[in-house]
Design a protein around this nucleic acid. Sequence first.
DNA 1: TTGTATGCGTTATCAC
DNA 2: GTGATAACGCATACAA
Lengths: 349, 349
Amino acid sequence: MGAEGNYQPSIVITADVLVKELGLSPTAISQIINGKGRYSEATRKRVLDRVRELGYTPHAGARAARLKRFETFALFNAAPFWQGIPHPGIYEGCMEGCADVGYRLILESVTDKGMPGLRDRSNLLGQRVCDGLLMNYHMQPPDDLRRLVNACGIPVVWLNVQLSENSLYPDDEGATSTLAQALIAKGRRRIAYVDTSPHHDYQTPDGLRGAHYSVSMRMESLRTCLEQAGLPLVRLTPGLKDFDERMAAARAFLKKPDRPDGLICYNEQDAQIIVLAAAELGLTLGKDLGVAQYSEHPDILKRPIATALIPFRDMAKAAITDLVAAVASGERSLPSRAIPYTFALESTL
Amino acid sequence: MGAEGNYQPSIVITADVLVKELGLSPTAISQIINGKGRYSEATRKRVLDRVRELGYTPHAGARAARLKRFETFALFNAAPFWQGIPHPGIYEGCMEGCADVGYRLILESVTDKGMPGLRDRSNLLGQRVCDGLLMNYHMQPPDDLRRLVNACGIPVVWLNVQLSENSLYPDDEGATSTLAQALIAKGRRRIAYVDTSPHHDYQTPDGLRGAHYSVSMRMESLRTCLEQAGLPLVRLTPGLKDFDERMAAARAFLKKPDRPDGLICYNEQDAQIIVLAAAELGLTLGKDLGVAQYSEHPDILKRPIATALIPFRDMAKAAITDLVAAVASGERSLPSRAIPYTFALESTL
DNA sequence: TTGTATGCGTTATCAC
DNA sequence: GTGATAACGCATACAA
C-alpha cells in the first residue's frame, strides 16, 4: 500500500536541467548520453549517474526531428472481420525484435471494412511517424493496398504472405515435407489431409476472394510428397460448417475399413475433431494413428499430437532485422523468403 | 503484379513543400490542416486537396516537440513467463480506443525475468515518449513497480487488476452472480465450481507469490451466491497437472450419484474437460448439465456452453477514455472501477 | 484573412 | 576535453 499517491513533482526533466545542474554544455550532456565524443571518465560518470537518478530520457520527438529517424517501426494489422485474434507470435516477435535494436513499436489495426479510405485515416502510412512498416495482412493483399504502402517511401515487410519481394512467410512446404517424411518413416501408408474449415471462401468487401496461401500450399505440398513416395492422398470432406457435422464426418472417416493411419490437420480445430473421434472409436494416438497439426503452440492439453510450430515469432524478428538493414542502406526492395518451422512431439506420429 | 517497384520518389513532403507550392504562409497551412483560423472555403479546399494528393502528414516528432503532447499512449505488457499469449481483447480495445481519439499506440512487453532493471531498459517509463501508460500486469503488481510507474509523472491505468486507484478490471463478482442466478433459475441445485489449473502457485522471480484476483474472486462470489440461496458449493479437485489426471477427476466427479447439475468453470480448459467427460458419460449439455465458463470468446466449436464474456475490450477502451481525460485535466488519480461482463448462450444453462 | 518571428528539446558540426 | 551555434519541422502569439 505504500506505493500509492507517490507522484513525482511535475517537473519535466530535460537535458537543460542536467546542463544547469552539472555545469556542462548541452553538447557534453548529449554526447555522453549517446556514448560519443571523448570525455574524462569522471565527467562521464557524473553525468550518467545523475541521468539515472533523475530518470532522464531524451524527448523522443525532438530526437526524431533532429536525427531524421523515429527509431520506431509500425505493425499494421489488417485483420479480416472473422479473425478477432491476430497471431500472438507476430506481436511478440515484433516486440522482441524492436527491443533488441532499441526501436519502439507502434501498433495499428484495421478491419477489411475499414480498408477503403484507409490512407485518410491512418497517419502511419505516411513517412512522418515511423521508419518502417510491418504489414500483417491475412491473405494476398489487394494491389491498391500494395501501391499505397509502396508509395510511403519507407521500407516495408509483408508478414505471413508470399509476394515477389518484401515478404516473409512460414515455410509450409518444408514443414509439410518434414511431417510427411516422418509419417512415412513410421510406416504409415494411408496418409490423410484434414481441412474442414469453411472460412476459405472468405470474401473481402471489395469483392476480392481468396484464402491464406497455406490453405493450398499445405495440401499441394503433401500431395507432391506422397506422390513421390507412391502413396495416395486421402482427404476428409472439406467445407463442413459446425461441430456436429465435422464430428460425424471424422467418425465415418476413421471407421472405414481402409481408414487413414496418418493425418495431417490444417489447424488445431481440425486436429481436435480427429482426436475426439479417435477417442470415441478407441483408436490410440501414436499407435493406431499418427496425428499432426500446424499450430503456433503444442497442444494445450498435452495430448500426443505432433505439431509443426508455425514460426511467427522468428518471422517477425527476421522482419525487424530486415527493416533495420533497409533503414540503414536506403534499399527498398528486399527478397522474399521462407522461415523454417520447428517441430514438437514428432515421435508421436 | 502491377503493384511492384512502384516507389515514390524519395522526396519528403513537409509543410514547406505545401507553402511553396500553394504560395501560402506556414501559418495558413498549419491552421487549415488543424481546422483552426478563419480562411476562405476556396483556400481551405485548395490546401486540403493538395494535402491528400501528396499524402502529407505532419512530422510526429516536430509536432510533439511543439505541442508538448505526443498523441501517443503506451501499452506496457508485463507478462509472466508462463503466459505467452496476452489477451487479444486488451490489444484490440486499446487500438480501437486510440484510433477513436486520434492517438497512436506504442507497445512494450517485458517478462518477469526482465523486471529488475526495467527502468534502465525501457524508455517508455519516462515522460518523454508518450502521454499516458496502460499497464497490463498479470497479477497484483509489486510495490516497486507501482512506485516506478507513479514516478513517471504521466497518467497511468492498470488493466485487469484491482488496486485502490487507477485500475480497471472485469466485474467477476457480477458475472458470477449472473451465472449463479441463471443456474438456480433453471432449477439447478448441485452447483459446482471447477478450477483444476495448477498455475495459481505462480511465483515471480523476486519471490512474490500470487495469482490473478479472479482466481479467488470467482469462487468466493459463487460461494456467497449459493449461500444466500441456501445451496452448497461443490468443488472439483483443484491443482491437477495434466490432461489425463483432469479427465479422470472430471469423470469421477460426474459419475457420482450426487453429481453436480450445474458447473461454473474458471476457464475454457476446465470447461473443455467437463464437456469431454460429460460426452463420455452420455450427459447432455443444457439438459442433464448446465455448463458455464468465463472466457474471452464463446466456445470455438459452438458447443452449448454458457459463456461469461470477459470484457477486456470494453475495459481497454474505457482505459483510453480515462487517459485522455487525465491528459486534459492533469489529474493523476482516477477511481478504480469494475467493467461489466456480457454473456453468450445463457439459455443453455 | 495572412505573414513574421519565435521556441519546442535535441544532436551534429566545427571551433577552441 | 569541452562549448557555441545551427538546424530539424511544426504551431502559436502577435503584428499587419
